[in-house]
Design a protein around this nucleic acid. Structure first.
Length: 613
RNA sequence: GGCCCCGUAGCUCAGUGGAUGAGAGCGUUUGCCUCCGGAGCAAAAGGUCGUGGGUUCGAGCCCCACCGGGGUCACCA
């Protein structure tokens, strides 16, 4: 319909100009929009206001000339000029309602477009260190990243989901040492107190609990193991329960065999085994959150030498050096990021010979551009200061404008309005997996998605768990379930049979092959068709603005329009209230179209559309 | 101090330079079940869009300066 109106306006403009009613001028954008208020039509063009200066005429005069030369088409009922010079188009009822049929015919393809033109786009998100479980903050990136990818796919991009595993830096050794120390403590307790592993394990957990409670260190005797743990690792340690879990596991697998081995060997072994386990658990958590990745990219792989003895990092730095962007100072190697607008030049190799995290990122992003056309990294707001240097290096390497960062604000975890206390001692909050066990994936994802990414989120566990009208996800799902129920009733099938047949089949049984949409002339019916027809542009705009959160607002509006329709319009005949069969079929088709778009839209944000609740 | 995000209804937030009622949900108040799912619908009350300038046909949106809240400014990862 957009194209049709575009043609109509172009032709009217050309005719008006040809006949001298309007001066010659070129307009690129006709300013075709959907008015917020339905009383202003189904479509509007702001071309008259836009071209006022070029035409040296008042907007209303231009609009009048356009309307005078506008040809009649059956789809458009009338065209009006309003306000300062809007040209408003009112669709005929039949034309507007055709959207119901279109949706039913296109099914899951409805709203797909070539907006992305097949661009290979990679979205990298979460990318947490494999040294601990994912937390709610990571959960937000999972929901955001995955939903964005789904939207991109629908909008015609060739999408790759990537997780960057930071398995190279010194934090890996800290991780290994932490497990190693806990392992020694378990063995020490078993030997000295003559207790079983389980008991020793419990003692360490209790000890840690006491440590967290004792914030001012007034009762050190209640947490000797935690103190010894911190002391032996110089405070640079991972103190979470999961480290004790891993140590216990290694005790079970190897007994005390590793006690007499050198600290370095033990650390290295535990580090590697712990890493594998942690990564598996992270993958499982992502899968539970319906956020699976195409590529798990290991930072270490960037340091593996090729046949010439050079790693990807070496090659990347050589390339930059060849371009004259590197220099040595005080024994360190610097990248001239100031050439690209950074505040200062950035270190790639420290004076002690170690590579910085940035060095990895240089090679990593270089690698990305060998694979895709456009790169989006989703980072937490605390990484804001890091954008410029990576952007600089992407530009230096020859990919200006192809690197993009989507910054996301943080999540505050609350329970009944009070922050889930994250004492400094505890270090980490509730693992995301544990949260998904308590709150449903649907409610969690929906809540994490419902705000713009540059808005902070207060995630109140109790509030998100609540299954009532205060929780919009259920409002939307209820609308879907309600429609399914109507369609089942229309087709005369049970819930079980419907599961078997699938709702599409149930719907066609209820509706039949032909139906007359021109019968749907109630205001609430038009509101519904209007809302449904917004969906394709919504998907494009969500992709364009990297703002999948708007889907949640749309889906709430659609559910609301449906409920409004449903209370006013009887869909199925009943004994006490007979209904014209043709009208019933048309309304069933409207219901079915709504159901499909609700399911489709919810799927774009990774939320399920239940057939019953 | 530099840079980034946020200030819109009691609360949580939408709002793509467009329409002399600035929207939604929650909360508050009032109606609506002999009938397809009441996890619903209808209505009311509730606003100096942080402040002050500017840009233009037109600003919650763009520019400048302030005021509040949060984040960040490593040869850490």
């Amino acid at each position: 319909m957009r194209e049709k109106i575009e043609q109509l306006v172009r032709k009217a403009l050309a005719d008006a100009q040809a006949q001298g009613d309007l001066p010659q001028f070129e307009v690129e954008d006709l300013g075709l929009e959907r008015p917020a208020d339905a009383s202003n039509g189904d479509w509007t063009s702001t071309v008259a206001m836009r071209s006022a200066r070029l035409a040296h005429k008042s907007p209303r005069d231009i609009a009048a000339a356009l309307v005078a030369h506008m040809s009649d088409v059956p789809e458009i009922e009338r065209v009006e000029i309003a306000g300062p010079g809007f040209v408003n188009f009112y669709l005929s009822t039949a034309a507007g309602n055709e959207i119901f049929r279109t949706i039913r015919e296109q099914g899951a393809d409805f709203g797909k477009s070539d907006f992305g033109k097949g661009t290979k786009i990679q979205v990298e998100y979460i990318s947490a260190n494999p040294v601990g479980p994912l937390h709610v903050g990571h959960g937000r990136w999972a929901a955001l990243g995955d939903s964005l990818c789904r939207v991109f796919e629908h909008a015609g991009y060739d999408v790759e989901r990537e997780y960057y595993i930071n398995d190279h830096g010194s934090q890996m050794d800290v991780f290994g040492s932490s497990i190693s120390k806990r392992y020694l403590q378990l063995n020490e307790i078993m030997a000295q107190k003559n207790v079983e592993l389980q008991e020793a394990y419990q003692m360490l957990l209790d000890d840690r609990e006491a440590f967290i409670e004792d914030e001012d260190d007034s009762r050190p005797e209640t947490h000797p193991y935690m103190d010894a743990f911190n002391e032996s690792l110089g405070g640079n340690a991972y103190g979470g329960d999961y480290i004790i879990d891993l140590a216990k596991r290694f005790c079970e697998e190897n007994g005390d065999a590793w006690v007499s081995v050198s600290e370095d060997d033990r650390m290295a072994d535990f580090r590697e085994r712990g890493y594998k386990l942690m990564l598996e658990s992270i993958k499982a958590t992502c899968h539970n959150a319906r956020s699976d990745f195409d590529v798990w990219f290991s930072e270490r792989s960037l340091y593996v030498p090729d046949e010439n003895g050079k790693s990807a990092v070496d090659r990347a730095l050589e390339t930059l050096d060849g371009m004259g962007y590197l220099y040595h100072e005080d024994g360190a190697l610097f990248f001239r990021s100031t050439k690209f607008g950074d505040d200062k030049d950035r270190v790639l190799i420290k004076s002690n010979g170690e590579y910085t995290y940035f060095a990895s990122d240089v090679a990593y992003h270089w690698n990305k551009f060998q694979r895709v056309d456009h790169v989006i990294d989703i980072w937490g707001a605390d990484h804001h200061g890091y954008i410029q240097r990576v952007d600089s290096v992407c530009t230096a390497l020859g990919f200006p404008g192809q690197f993009e960062v989507l910054l996301g604000q943080f999540v505050n975890l609350l329970r009944n309005g009070t922050p889930v206390k994250m004492s400094k001692r505890k270090g980490t909050g509730i693992p995301f997996d544990e949260l998904l066990g308590e709150v449903s994936v649907d409610a969690t994802r929906y809540t994490l998605m419902s705000k713009s990414s540059n808005q902070m989120i207060d995630f109140d566990i109790e509030q998100v768990k609540r299954q009532d009208s205060s929780n919009p996800v259920y409002y939307v799902q209820y609308a879907h379930a309600r429609i399914c129920s109507i369609l089942r009733r229309g087709a005369g099938v049970s819930i079980e049979e419907a599961q078997e047949l699938g709702m599409d089949e149930v719907a066609s049984r209820a509706i039949g092959d032909s139906y007359d949409l021109s019968l749907l002339s109630e205001n609430v019916e038009q509101a519904l068709s209007r809302k449904l027809s917004e969906f394709p542009t919504l998907v494009e705009n969500c992709a364009r603005d990297r703002a999948p959160f708007r889907i949640t607002h749309y889906v709430e509006e659609l559910a609301s329009d449906f409920h409004g329709f449903y209370t006013v319009c009887q869909v199925l005949p009943s004994e006490s209230r007979p209904l014209d069969e043709d009208l019933s079929r048309a309304r069933l088709a409207a219901c079915d179209a709504t159901r499909r778009v609700l399911a489709l839209a919810l799927n774009l944000i990774g939320v399920s559309a239940p057939q019953s609740m």
